[in-house]
Simulated assay, not measured.
Amino acid sequence: MKIGELASLTGCPVETIRYYEREGLLPEPARSASNYRLYAGSHAERLRFIRHCRTLDMTLDEIRTLLDYHDHPRQPCNAVNGLIDEHLAHVEARIEQLQALRGALVALRSRCSGEADSSQCGILSALAQPAAEEITAHRESSHVPGPHGSH
Rank of each mutant, 00 (worst) to 15 (best):
K2W: 09
K2R: 14
I3M: 05
G4W: 05
E5V: 15
L6K: 01
A7D: 01
S8D: 14
S8H: 15
T10C: 08
G11V: 05
G11K: 05
C12I: 12
P13M: 03
V14Y: 05
V14F: 05
V14I: 15
I17V: 13
I17T: 03
R18E: 00
Y19W: 07
Y19A: 03
Y20T: 03
Y20C: 05
E21D: 07
L25A: 09
P27L: 03
P27N: 06
E28H: 10
S32F: 10
S32Y: 08
S32H: 04
A33G: 11
A33C: 08
S34W: 00
Y36M: 04
R37D: 03
R37Y: 07
R37I: 11
L38Y: 05
Y39L: 07
A40Q: 13
S42D: 09
A44C: 10
A44W: 05
E45M: 11
R46G: 09
L47A: 07
L47T: 07
F49H: 06
F49K: 04
I50V: 12
R51M: 15
H52Y: 14
C53V: 09
C53K: 03
T55I: 06
L56Y: 03
L56W: 05
L56D: 02
D57C: 12
D57H: 11
T59Q: 06
L60H: 02
L60P: 01
D61V: 10
E62D: 04
R64T: 07
T65Q: 08
L67N: 03
Y69C: 02
Y69K: 00
Y69V: 06
D71I: 04
D71T: 06
P73T: 08
P73V: 08
R74C: 12
R74L: 14
P76H: 07
N78K: 12
N78Q: 15
A79Q: 08
V80K: 03
N81C: 15
N81T: 15
G82Y: 02
E86D: 08
H87E: 07
H87V: 10
H90Y: 12
H90V: 07
H90G: 04
A93E: 09
A93V: 04
R94T: 10
I95M: 10
Q97I: 11
Q99M: 11
A100D: 13
R102L: 09
G103Y: 01
L105K: 00
L105Y: 00
V106A: 13
A107K: 08
A107F: 00
A107L: 09
L108Y: 00
R109K: 14
R109T: 10
S110I: 04
R111T: 02
C112P: 01
C112H: 04
S113I: 03
G114D: 03
G114K: 02
G114P: 03
G114Y: 02
Q120I: 02
G122F: 01
I123R: 00
L124H: 01
A126G: 06
L127G: 01
L127V: 07
A128Q: 09
Q129A: 14
P130Y: 04
I135A: 13
T136I: 13
A137T: 12
A137F: 05
A137L: 11
H138A: 13
E140R: 13
S142E: 11
H143A: 14
H143N: 08
P145S: 10
P145F: 10
P147L: 09
H148K: 14
H148D: 15
H148E: 13
H148Y: 13
G149A: 09
G149H: 06
S150P: 01
H151D: 10
